[in-house]
Design a protein around this nucleic acid. Structure first.
Lengths: 244, 244
DNA sequence: AAGTGGTCTAGACCACAGC
DNA sequence: CTGTGGTCTAGACCACTTT
């Protein structure tokens, strides 16, 4: 029958296991039922139980030790997403509970530098377009963004991205889904351009992220230089050791 | 028989698939053999094939599209580890191909601040020990580190960590394996202490990481404040979108 | 309709931990 | 020795994409 939506058995099993943890007052003790027990309890195969446990392990709710068992993680609450999760700046500001805004500084089409040709793997003679925007959160300066893309992405479309995020535009208009980025992080003072053109204090420090963004197949689609105001946006990173 | 070491079938299958990619000149084309084909080619079950492909997908060497197939990723080379991978500073400096060194600045046992009690989930009346060390890479200042831990970890052992990393000490002497950390990142100017006591230029900017480190079960074991010299250590982060 | 990857079952043997 | 999680097999049906 399976009229219960399109939710997988593993997902259901995961929820049932979470319910069982809550009900059974697992707070102090830490050991969970064995996989064999869960197979009987939930009436599904071991594969499904292991899928469910894998989901819980990914979320750091449980951890396993071979030969011993499965244990409830001491850390009670979830891991909030950090810098390792790629969000558009619009999404980031919304997650911080603030209202995103955009002030356009400039648009420019030009020949790319050799560095940019390498970074975006551009074809011979291909031009790029650069957008400069000031991003605000509740009307405070959150970041100054310089985005550079192959100009071919904008041939048949007006350069109007208005309040939308670049990610949203790339996906909705061009079907390009930005899936990953490689980012370098540097502490910086504001440039003269920022001091002159923007309302930036001269002794204010910024976090600069320079990033190359890729689609699912690993093709570079967007280079960006973002100066973040650390008074507005604090960056967190969740770091994990490589397996031994 | 299986005398071939302790390497799993999935691992072998992964290597065989990689060999096949190389041999078959997959550079331009991008589609890999289907799972059914690989089952026949490699003589293993579909589970094993899927495990092998999952490993390759984790390493971003391939990607899958439901109903279509498995594809070779355009990005030819590996993702170098970034900030999202937790390493000791010693390991980080070695990965940069430089020689790590340590200069001890100070050791202090004291009552923890309320903030530290919260961060390290300390018991009532529990004291902490703080280590201040200057870390060098090929004799250049790489970072200034302030590590704080419950003093109980050091009761029966001399406070001699000498050149070893803190992670190494915790694991070797205490059996504590640091598995994860939550880090906050800020751009900073050097403190007066750093200018006076260390050979730091007054206009040098630093990346400050304040981090809480956890063991596998999520228990906090170490709080650290690290000031990194961005001229020596450049931080990279590999960022990924949450699944849609 | 045929082929693909995604999910699931019911078995099996293994390596490791603890008694 | 028993119980645990880790690996593997041989089947099956599903949802999705292409022909």
């Amino acid at each position: 029958m399976n009229l219960e939506r399109n939710i997988s058995l593993s997902q259901k099993a995961k929820i049932q296991i979470l319910d069982h943890i809550k009900k059974s007052a697992f707070k102090v003790d830490e050991i969970l039922p064995s996989e064999a027990t869960l197979v009987k309890m939930l009436g599904v195969s071991r594969y499904t139980v292991r899928e469910a446990l894998a989901l819980l392990e990914q979320e750091r709710i449980i951890y396993k030790i071979k030969g011993k068992g499965t244990f409830l993680n001491r850390r009670p609450t979830l891991i909030e997403s950090g810098l390792e999760k790629l969000d558009s700046i619009t999404e980031t500001i919304r997650k911080f509970g603030m209202m995103p805004g955009t002030k356009w500084i400039g648009v420019e089409v030009k020949n790319p530098s050799d560095d940019m040709i390498e970074k975006l793997k551009l074809e011979e003679g291909e031009k790029v377009v650069t957008f400069k925007r000031l991003r605000t959160a509740d009307n405070n300066i959150a970041s100054y963004c310089i985005d550079t893309m192959p100009v071919k992405y904008f041939e048949h479309i007006p350069y109007d991205i208005s309040e939308e995020s670049m990610f949203y535009y790339l996906e909705k208009e061009l079907g390009i889904y930005v899936e990953s980025a490689i980012s370098y992080i540097m502490p910086t003072r504001p440039s003269m351009e920022m001091i002159n053109e923007l309302d930036v204090k001269i002794d204010q420090l910024f976090i600069m992220l320079h990033q190359i963004h890729f689609d699912k197949s690993g093709k570079p689609v967007l280079y960006s230089n973002d100066y973040f105001n650390p008074e507005i946006i604090k960056f967190k990173i969740n770091r994990f050791r490589e397996e031994r």
